[in-house]
Design a protein around this nucleic acid. Structure first.
Lengths: 258, 258
DNA sequence: TGTGGTGCAATGGTCAGACCAGTAATTGGT
DNA sequence: ACCAATTACTGGTCTGACCATTGCACCACA
């Protein structure tokens, strides 16, 4: 049998390859720990292999304790891998809110390197995905309808994730992922406010556009620079927001824990 | 479905059971190490299972290194049963050697920033601690007595930890810490070899000295630069070590014990 | 209104038979 | 005696079907 060019890219149709591809997807953060991955029949279509081969592939991952399978339910990614998943850092945040800006500092560093490597190492396929993610986000913002924050945040996240994946460094992807999760879980409310305002939103949009262009153009230095600026301005915007809410709080005499 | 009494004795028709039964047969000496066991089709009849289930069972034994399979030839019982049980994390690194260098790449980035911030933000107290850690390590290396690896590794780690703590960014400290733990747990053996050799050890010592001087002098750019060089050369040394051990493995060839 | 059963659809688990792809011994010709 | 083609194995993959368990939506009953 002859393989189509697309299938050649996808890899050979052997259980080892199936396991490798799935493991890579998990490593890349496409399938996350605890998540229920698609049914065997769906994975067959997606990976272009028979169910028998797919099942042998899953068997490999199962024996490596990477997934857990229950009949009638499905296969879930084991929560063993996630070196950072349940981060002890959460406690830090509860005790010292200032840590937020420390986090943004580290994240800027990683996003910068991520953009740099993406511009340098990204394949044409990577660039297509990045552009697609960018367009999805840009299209959503440009539509006249009232902007919903949650979907936009998801698109935003998908865009940055695509860039980090193009760096082809799974450790970087995971570290970044865990920091982003940490950020969102701690200050999602603030991010919400950021998206709601005209000024910040447009600034973010412009930075996203420049970031996309630099990465796709392969300009590594420029990409890193834009990514750093992006995170820096987000940090500044959050600082302003914080100062403002403090003023409001003081004047309104409100005590609201968040 | 109702199983006949014979099948109840033989066990249920699941791949896990197939693997267990075959393993027992090997343990009982029915199939001996090095021996070619019956073809899959014959085993199907004998174990009363379909070929798909049998193959999944064989897949289990293969992942446990109990058998070895070659297309067009058959499956042979492996020479010795693997009594050593390694951590699932090691598994990941064994199958994806590149991940190690991805990790080092990220760690270099963080160590660089850590040194940079330490030089810029470090208090006089921080510098005192850093210098003390450095001296403890340097003194240990300079003493004539034969160098023990474990204590040295601990002193080394303490030195880097002191620097990261001087950055006054807890997120950076924690992220770096977890990455270092991951590194040591996966390639401690390699690191051991690094310390054991005269050349690499002296290079590392010189870099540590320069790193210490730059941080204490408050030269942020220089500190970052030295930290990056430090991690880069560690990465290169590990690469060389890897290549070398591969050469040794190849030249040693097989000495078959039967 | 709530609650417990019941049916249905989706999931993983197993099966049978066919064909593809490598291996190695056999065979036949030179 | 040698070498190439044949051939009868081996494991590897695919297809489509059916079984067993799960979870959820639905509905009758209290």
């Amino acid at each position: 049998m002859t393989l189509s060019s697309e299938e050649q890219v996808a890899g050979r149709r052997t259980p080892e390859n199936v396991a490798a591809r799935l493991e890579q997807l998990i490593l890349d953060g496409v399938f996350r720990p605890g998540q229920l991955l698609p049914s065997e029949r769906r994975l067959c279509e997606r990976l272009k292999v028979s169910r028998a081969s797919l099942r042998e592939g899953l068997r490999i991952l199962r024996s490596k304790q990477i997934i857990d399978t229950r009949q009638g339910h499905g296969s879930t990614v084991a929560s063993l891998l996630p070196m950072h998943q349940q981060s002890p850092l959460m406690h830090l945040f509860n005790d010292h809110p200032r840590t937020l800006f420390d986090l943004l500092e580290v994240r800027a560093l990683l996003e910068g390197e991520s953009a740099f490597l993406a511009a340098r190492r990204g394949t044409s396929m990577d660039r297509v995905v990045i552009t697609r993610r960018y367009r999805e986000m840009a299209d959503y913002v440009e539509q006249a309808a009232p902007i919903e924050v949650e979907p936009l945040a998801r698109l935003d996240h998908a865009f940055h994730l695509a860039i980090s994946q193009a760096s082809h460094n799974p450790v970087l992807v995971h570290t970044l992922q865990s920091l982003t999760d940490l950020l969102l879980s701690s200050v999602f409310a603030s991010v919400k406010h950021l998206y709601h305002r005209e000024g910040p939103r447009e600034m973010i949009n412009r930075q996203h556009a420049r970031l996309h262009d630099a990465v796709v153009a392969g300009d590594a230095e420029q990409a890193k620079q834009v990514a750093l600026e992006h995170l820096t301005s987000i940090s500044e915007l959050l600082r302003e927001l914080e100062a403002e809410s403090e003023r409001l709080e003081r004047s309104a005499m409100r005590i609201e824990p968040w």
